[in-house]
Amino acid sequence: MEQKLILASGSPRRKELLSQLGYQFSVIRTDVEESQSLDETPTQYVERLSQDKALAGLEIESDAVVIGSDTIVVCDNRVMEKPNNLDQAKQMLMSLSNRAHQVMTAVTIVSSEQQETIVVTTDVWFKPLSEEEIEQYWQTGEPCDKAGAYGIQGIGGRFVTRIEGSYHAVVGLPLFETDQLLHKFL
């Protein structure tokens, strides 16, 4: 019997990326509290979130292989969540302006027998941003549901001068690493 594969994520970007790998899968949304504990490093935080999502999916579909993933933006060792308003987005984007930051994506794959997690860190450099550019970008609506207030695969890609690491991890699911992990389960 072939193992059922589940993506425990409501992200359309993750769904699209996993589809590129050619797997048949279904999607379930999990409700996982996303707040960093005081004693957690950014890496521990993103790992925990991906694990919580995968395990929540496994609770719903106990006979499946479940993928949980989370992406965070880190600048000066500080996690940047999704902005709640223009002021937060401005603050985030101004601190990313004209410098490098890290995007960390954790992928956890679980089944009833095993669990594996990998964290992929990519360095991303931004051009200098003006307040006017940030306000115009906010008006597009794109920054609202994105960690660090930008999407590299969308309009926010115009701010990125270079990356070192996995482009797909910045979008939300590192293809190579996810595929390597899935080979251990399927």
Rank of each mutant, 00 (worst) to 15 (best):
M1F: 09
Q3L: 10
K4R: 09
A8Y: 12
G10A: 14
K15F: 08
L17V: 10
F25L: 00
V27G: 06
D31N: 15
V32I: 09
E34V: 09
S37W: 13
P42K: 11
P42V: 08
P42N: 09
E47V: 13
R48A: 03
R48S: 03
A54E: 02
L55S: 07
A56G: 09
E61D: 04
D63V: 03
I67C: 06
I67P: 11
V73P: 03
M80Y: 13
L86K: 15
Q88Y: 13
A89P: 12
A89N: 14
K90I: 12
K90E: 06
M92E: 03
M94E: 10
S95E: 01
T105P: 06
T105L: 07
T108M: 00
T108L: 01
T108D: 01
Q114P: 00
E116H: 13
V120T: 10
W125R: 08
F126S: 04
E135S: 13
Q136H: 14
Y137R: 02
Q139H: 15
Q139C: 12
C144G: 01
D145K: 10
K146V: 04
G148D: 05
A149K: 06
I152A: 05
Q153P: 11
G154L: 02
G157E: 00
S166M: 02
H168P: 06
V170T: 06
P174A: 06
P174E: 01
D179V: 12
D179H: 15
D179M: 10
L186I: 11
